[in-house]
Computed example of a mutant assay.
Amino acid sequence: MKIIDLGLISYKEAEALQLKTLEAVTAGSEDNTVFILEHPKVITLGRQGGAENLHMDEALLAEHGIELAQTTRGGNITCHFPGQLVAYPIWRVEKRPGGMRKFFHDMEEAVMNTCAHFGVQTIRRPKHPGVWVDESRKICSMGIGVRRWVTYHGLALNIGSDVSLFNAITLCGIQGAVPTSLSAEAGQEIDMKDAKNVFEKEFRKAFTDSEMVTHQAAK
């Protein structure tokens, strides 16, 4: 796999790069690729909608320098901003045992182990993809798209303590869900570079372990 750090990049630029890489991975001319990055302030709507969970009109969003984007990922409404670690795996899932459920499990595993590295314990919630600190506090959102058995879009893990952009939405359309972050839960500001380094290690471990199990099962 390749993991590429894009730094701070606009949503539209990252989406175009995802689609270009999606075609290459699908064609077999590129390895599975993971982009890690941060976005300027943007609120995104999923295939299932989410506009009903937006609390600001587009004029007010523009006034505050917040982009609004329709996406092709699953899930409802969410937002991205500097201080949030975004990861977009462009990944072949056709021959992975467990299908999409296992793919989500492995993404969650990488996030949960990253959080644990900084002393933050997390949980899964059935029927709510992503990672939670408890039944109400959500630290990481997930939503993907799939074309010809190759994934794109991915996950967003809140690192910095400022998650105020979430005030503009009902988080993922889930009543009672409250955003939190790695820094808030750890009780200290976590450096983004450190978080990226740990996440990259944990992502490689989660997906390499899965691939090893796949190969063993195929024997």
Rank of each mutant, 00 (worst) to 15 (best):
L182Y: 09
R147I: 10
F35G: 01
R92C: 12
F118Q: 07
E58K: 15
G75D: 06
T114Q: 08
V86A: 03
A69N: 02
G173E: 02
D31Q: 11
T151K: 08
K102Q: 13
E94Q: 14
A14R: 01
R96C: 09
F207K: 02
V42T: 12
F207C: 02
F35C: 01
D194G: 04
I4W: 02
I169M: 05
T78L: 07
D5I: 05
E189T: 12
A110S: 14
G99R: 12
I4R: 15
D191C: 11
P40F: 03
K201P: 01
I169Q: 06
E109M: 13
A51N: 08
K196V: 03
L22A: 06
R96H: 10
D194S: 12
K12R: 13
P126F: 04
M56H: 10
T71D: 01
Q18P: 00
I43M: 08
A156C: 10
K41P: 10
E52D: 11
E58R: 15
P97T: 11
R137K: 14
I77W: 00
H215K: 15
V198N: 00
G160S: 15
T122Q: 07
Y88Q: 00
I123V: 15
N32E: 12
R124M: 04
D57Q: 05
G130A: 08
D162P: 06
S210D: 12
M1T: 11
G49A: 10
K102M: 14
S136W: 03
H64W: 02
V34S: 05
L182D: 04
Q216E: 12
K2C: 00
L165I: 14
G49K: 06
A16C: 03
D5Y: 03
F81E: 03
H117R: 13
L8A: 01
T21A: 10
V198G: 02
E185Q: 14
E189L: 09
D57G: 08
R124S: 12
D162E: 07
K201R: 14
S183G: 13
